[in-house]
Deep mutational scan, measured.
Amino acid sequence: DTLHVTQDGKHIELRGLSEEEIKLVEELLRRGRKVEEALKIIEELRK
Rank of each mutant, 00 (worst) to 15 (best):
D1A: 10
D1V: 06
D1F: 07
T2A: 05
T2F: 08
T2G: 11
T2N: 10
T2K: 09
T2Q: 08
T2V: 15
T2C: 10
L3W: 05
L3E: 07
L3K: 03
L3N: 08
H4D: 09
H4E: 11
H4T: 13
H4V: 15
H4Q: 10
H4A: 09
V5T: 07
V5A: 05
V5C: 13
V5Q: 07
V5L: 09
T6D: 14
T6H: 13
T6A: 08
T6Q: 13
T6W: 15
Q7L: 08
Q7F: 02
Q7I: 11
Q7Y: 02
D8W: 00
D8T: 04
G9M: 03
G9D: 10
G9A: 02
K10A: 14
H11G: 07
H11T: 12
H11V: 15
H11Q: 08
H11Y: 11
H11A: 07
H11C: 09
H11I: 13
I12W: 15
I12Q: 07
I12S: 05
I12Y: 15
I12E: 09
E13H: 08
E13K: 03
E13S: 10
E13I: 14
E13V: 14
E13Y: 10
E13R: 02
E13W: 10
L14P: 01
L14R: 01
L14G: 04
L14E: 04
L14S: 02
R15F: 15
R15M: 12
R15L: 14
R15T: 14
R15Q: 14
G16R: 03
G16A: 05
L17K: 00
L17G: 01
L17N: 00
S18Y: 05
S18F: 05
S18V: 05
S18E: 05
S18Q: 05
S18R: 07
E19L: 15
E19R: 14
E19T: 14
E19Q: 15
E20D: 14
E20T: 13
E20F: 13
E20C: 07
E21S: 01
E21C: 01
E21L: 02
E21M: 02
E21N: 01
E21K: 00
I22D: 02
K23N: 09
K23M: 12
K23D: 07
K23F: 11
K23Y: 10
K23E: 11
L24V: 10
L24N: 03
L24F: 09
L24R: 04
L24D: 01
L24Q: 05
L24W: 07
L24Y: 08
L24P: 00
V25Q: 00
V25C: 07
E26C: 15
E27H: 06
E27K: 10
E27T: 09
L28E: 05
L28M: 13
L28C: 03
L28V: 06
L28G: 01
L28A: 06
L28F: 12
L29V: 08
L29D: 00
L29P: 00
L29G: 01
L29Y: 02
L29K: 02
R30H: 10
R30Y: 08
R30L: 12
R30P: 00
R30G: 10
R31P: 02
R31I: 14
R31Y: 13
R31A: 15
G32L: 01
G32F: 03
G32Q: 02
G32K: 02
G32N: 04
G32S: 01
R33C: 09
R33H: 15
R33Q: 14
R33K: 14
K34I: 06
K34E: 08
K34L: 12
V35P: 08
V35I: 12
V35W: 07
E36N: 08
E36V: 08
E36T: 08
E36M: 09
E36S: 11
E37C: 06
E37V: 05
E37G: 03
E37Y: 11
E37M: 05
A38P: 00
A38E: 00
A38F: 03
A38H: 00
A38W: 01
A38V: 15
L39M: 13
L39A: 04
K40G: 09
K40T: 11
K40Y: 10
I41K: 06
I41G: 02
I41L: 11
I41E: 09
I41Q: 07
I41N: 04
I41Y: 12
I42H: 00
I42V: 11
I42A: 01
I42M: 04
E43M: 10
E43Y: 10
E43L: 10
E43D: 13
E44Q: 09
E44W: 09
E44N: 07
E44D: 12
E44L: 09
E44M: 07
E44K: 05
E44Y: 09
E44I: 08
L45Y: 07
L45I: 12
L45N: 07
L45K: 05
L45M: 11
L45E: 05
L45H: 06
R46Y: 03
R46P: 01
R46E: 01
K47H: 13
K47A: 15
K47I: 13
K47C: 04
K47F: 14
K47R: 10
K47N: 14
K47T: 13
K47V: 14
